[in-house]
Design a protein around this nucleic acid. Structure first.
Lengths: 120, 120
DNA sequence: CAATTACTTAAGCGGTAACCTAAGTTTTCC
DNA sequence: GGAAAACTTAGGTTACCGCTTAAGTAATTG
């Protein structure tokens, strides 16, 4: 395979992982996710415990929404935010798969060692 | 609780999550993890399919090592890299916990709806 | 209807992340 | 021992990220 092909044809799935992991890499955004896991909240409620301006919180919110981790809708003058656990699952699945590949490898190694032991 | 306290006393655990998710946010580094899940590799082997210079790959490797996702040791002139699945597990656990908080919330909501239904 | 609340929009700024090239260093092979 | 292989180190560039302040707009509330 020619060099660099892996990253150039990046499937939609991989782009989604980029956004998801990028979103979760920031402690402010993880704090927002943790808050929303306990139930919906307005933007102001989300911002209350955070040491930054409200526009900054809204920017973080936009990153979370772009990643599909959070949805929000505005009613009157209040925007209510909710978590979308399905997207969390996508990240979880990727992690699980890497571990399963790794353990499968060790199972094969184990089987190989058992076989060669028989040859003694 | 005063504003902004959450992020200022960030436990060691949260700092580890920062590094882990930041490391996994980059598609190049995820490709490296996927490769290493299939077995150990040298730096040159890791770099072969990637569309960038070798120093760039080494920098990515350093990020993965700092996060604890990968370990490496040098024997002779070749550095061999291996995955450390334990750190993948930490990220997986965080995701699982957020989802469990969210589902617990829905269980309580469910129970509440069942109760009020009885009142009809 | 004036004041307050709850965002929204816009512009800017400092730091750092992700590359690069060029020039080392240390093994290994012939 | 000289050349090639496999990194390593250093320095520089560009772009994006996380935040700020300032100035909006739109919905309640007294």
């Amino acid at each position: 395979m020619p060099a660099g092909l892996i990253l150039k044809r990046m499937p939609k799935f991989a782009a989604a992982l980029n956004q998801t992991f990028t979103a979760l890499a920031d402690p402010t955004r993880r704090a927002m996710v943790e808050r929303l896991a306990r139930g919906p909240a307005s933007v102001t409620e989300l911002a209350r415990p955070l040491p930054m301006s409200l526009p900054a919180v809204v920017q973080h919110l936009q990153v979370l929404e772009a990643a599909g981790l959070v949805t929000s809708e505005k009613t009157g003058r209040v925007r209510t935010c909710r978590i979308d656990p399905q997207t969390l699952g996508v990240a979880q699945d990727w992690l699980a798969q890497q571990r399963s590949v790794w353990t499968a490898r060790f199972d094969r190694l184990d089987a190989f060692l058992m076989e060669t032991k028989d040859d003694d």
